[in-house]
Amino acid sequence: MTIEILQKSSLTPSIAQQIRSLFNQLNSEISQLIIDKVLVPDNTIVFAVCREGDELIGMAAMATYKVISGHKGMVEDVIVSANHRGKGIGKKLMLKLLEEGKKQQLNEILLFSGHHRLPAITLYKSLGFQLKNSGLYTLKVG
């Protein structure tokens, strides 16, 4: 098993298809962008993947951005294949993102998780994440 940062230069049609399939395990109702459109130079994203041989078994992304309140990261789409859950892969992916966040000297890393995702919440708390007293509002614009 290997955990690595996926670069566009190492993206293959097989990996792109596996990313689509893996994302569908998280939420098949969300329309996905093609990974080629995500891994572009002007999109500041860290995309970690876990592979076992040629099989993609987990992924996690962190978008980074700068605002007046600091240099931040937003964790998105942490997914481990249903066949490989409970093996610590999610933790390894998160640790890879946190390592990259330290390298980039981020001030804060944020994430949102559904209240029903108890194993994910347990993982995030074990890594030091704390529930922030705030509300999340959303507006679909496209």
Rank of each mutant, 00 (worst) to 15 (best):
E76P: 05
I121K: 00
L93A: 03
G73C: 03
S113Q: 02
T2F: 15
G53V: 14
L139W: 12
E99G: 07
S9Q: 14
I34C: 14
L56D: 09
I109L: 10
L111K: 04
L98K: 03
L139G: 04
E76K: 06
K102L: 01
H84I: 02
I68S: 15
E99M: 04
D42V: 09
K140G: 12
L97R: 08
Q25N: 03
L97N: 07
S126I: 02
C50H: 05
S113T: 12
G73S: 06
Q17Y: 03
N24E: 10
F23L: 12
N133Y: 00
L39K: 04
I68C: 13
E108H: 11
Q104Y: 01
I15A: 05
K92E: 09
G114H: 13
R117A: 10
P13K: 01
M94A: 06
T122C: 02
L106I: 08
S28E: 10
S134T: 11
L6W: 02
L33E: 07
G86V: 05
S126N: 07
T122M: 03
T12W: 05
G135Y: 11
L139H: 10
A60P: 05
T64L: 08
D54T: 14
V40C: 07
G142N: 08
G86I: 06
D36N: 10
L111Q: 09
G142W: 03
G128T: 02
L93V: 07
A120I: 01
S126H: 03
N27R: 12
L131M: 09
R51V: 08
E55F: 13
A82S: 11
E55M: 15
I45F: 00
S113L: 06
L106H: 13
K72D: 11
L118M: 09
K8H: 15
N133K: 04
N133F: 00
A60G: 09
K66P: 15
I15M: 06
H116W: 14
G88P: 04
K132C: 09
T2P: 13
N133H: 03
L33Y: 05
S81G: 05
A48M: 03
N43Y: 06
L110T: 12
G70N: 07
G70F: 08
I34R: 15
K37G: 12
A48F: 03
N83K: 05
V80Q: 01
H84P: 10
R85P: 01
P13A: 00
G142Y: 08
Q18V: 06
G53E: 07
Q25G: 01
N24F: 04
L106K: 13
L110S: 13
K103I: 01
I79F: 01
S9W: 05
V80E: 04
H115W: 09
L111F: 09
K103M: 07
L26A: 02
V40S: 13
H71R: 12
S81I: 00
G86P: 01
I109N: 13
E76L: 02
A60Y: 04
M62G: 11
Q7A: 15
G53M: 11
V40M: 07
L39D: 10
